[in-house]
């Protein structure tokens, strides 16, 4: 499996660390307990297209959001995660 890092180009999967499903969004700290439970524990776990976080440890050290097919491992796209999560950093 190779991941097309937007920064470094196509790189072997061994250079990356997986961090799981990118779709759950952390609920507000004062939100309902049920929402926090769903965020921490529940997953769609789809067979097919999956948006997921990969960290390019052995490369540019950027966090990526990679779209991958969990059945075929086809990776149609990968983008930097930072712009997506810019609001979270504060």
């Amino acid at each position: 499996m190779r991941i097309p890092c937007p920064y470094c180009g196509s790189r072997d999967i061994g250079e990356f660390v997986y961090r799981g499903d990118a779709s759950p969004v952390r609920p507000a700290a004062d939100g309902a307990e049920a929402a926090m439970f769903a965020y921490v524990y529940l997953r769609d776990n789809p067979m097919g297209r999956h948006e997921e976080h990969w960290y390019h440890t052995q490369g540019c050290r950027n966090w990526l959001v990679v779209t991958r097919d969990t059945l075929t491992h086809e990776i149609p796209s990968a983008r930097l995660a930072a712009p997506l999560n810019a609001g979270d950093a504060v």
Partner: peptide, 16 residues
């Protein structure tokens, strides 16, 4: 292997 998969086969880094 460490990432979500339904592929019933693995990749080389784990073999290594």
């Amino acid at each position: 292997d460490g990432y979500n998969s339904y592929a019933q086969r693995g990749n080389m880094p784990t073999v290594e």
